[in-house]
């Protein structure tokens, strides 16, 4: 018995040791980003490295906001505005459509649904060039229309929500119908609230996806003042590669909102991943 206790103590200790070591390794790069961003420029390249700067400074944050060719504050607002509009549109349209496919009858429903299913198997890269040419001929290049309208379509979102909507008890909807509620009202006041977990998860992951997207804004936006944060960061990395602390300050500004958001809603986000299978690569 005593032997067994020792064994359990050892495995438990090892378990914790592995987890703690792993947490340090995983957390360190994020910590390091913060540290470098507040290290004075002269000390960034100096050895031995300081795990905490002797003279922490906010000069790089000031520089990031004041340099003529950097518009981090503007990029930040752009990212917030564009991601929010995409998210609201995408979640609204996906849920509305999902409800249509889950509960309503109309001619051609199954054929249209099969078409959606088919496009889900085609990787998104195929549409990059045609959508770019389309956006160009619409005169939308270098405008937010180019980001918002293609970004508002999520076939996966429709599939996901349809699955949740079909599990809402039909009796509830039928009762509401008899009470004279219209279809839209049923969707809005019964089905949506009952599927809140899925809606919240979709909202979070669509927002994160839009906030973090790099390729599409890189391709369709040109003006400095219209860029979103990820594209702005590539400019920073390209132009100021010699000023590491400055680049890191920009990276912190781009990452802090999502990290903060994650810290607040972590339980919901992790549950959302389990529920929907979204939220990563």
């Amino acid at each position: 018995m005593n032997h067994y206790r020792v064994y359990r103590f050892l495995t438990r200790t090892l378990h914790y040791a592995v987890l703690i070591a792993l947490a340090v390794v995983v957390g360190f790069p994020i910590y390091w980003m913060l540290v470098v961003s507040i290290t004075p420029a002269a000390e960034v390249y100096r050895w031995p490295l300081q795990l905490w700067p002797a003279n922490p400074t906010f000069e790089h944050y000031r520089a990031v906001f004041t340099r003529q060719d950097l518009m981090v504050d503007r990029w930040f607002i752009n990212s917030v505005v564009v991601s929010t509009i995409i998210t609201v549109l995408c979640v609204f349209l996906s849920s509305l459509t999902a409800y249509g496919f889950a509960r309503l009858e109309f001619p051609g429903r199954n054929i249209i649904f099969m078409l959606l299913l088919f496009t889900l198997m085609v990787p998104g890269q195929v549409t990059l060039i045609p959508v770019f040419l389309l956006v160009r001929s619409l005169g939308w290049l270098d405008t937010y229309h180019a980001l918002i309208w293609p970004g508002a379509v999520s076939v996966f979102g429709v599939f996901l929500l349809r699955q949740f909507f079909t599990s809402v008890p039909r009796e509830l909807e039928e009762a509401a119908l008899m009470d004279g509620a219209g279809r839209f009202r049923i969707y809005w006041q019964i089905v949506l609230p009952l599927s809140r977990a899925a809606i919240v998860a979709l909202t979070i992951f669509v927002f994160l996806g839009a906030w973090n997207d790099l390729f599409w804004p890189l391709v369709v936006l040109n003006s400095l003042e219209l860029r979103t944060l990820p594209v702005g960061l590539t400019v920073l990395q390209g132009t100021y590669i010699q000023e590491r602390a400055l680049v890191m300050a920009g990276t912190v500004i781009a990452s802090a909102p999502v990290l903060l958001f994650y810290a607040i809603f972590q339980r919901r986000i992790i549950q959302g991943v389990m529920l929907t299978g979204m939220g990563g690569r």
């Binding site: 390091w32 990395q237 781009a254 990452s255 994650y262 991943v273 990563g280």
Partner: peptide, 22 residues
């Protein structure tokens, strides 16, 4: 631990690339 291990996932590829290249 779950919180820490999932945290890097929410970063953009731009942020992650800059951090790791440094």
């Amino acid at each position: 631990f779950r919180f820490v291990f999932y945290a890097p996932v929410v970063l953009s590829v731009a942020a992650m690339g800059i951090i790791m290249s440094w």
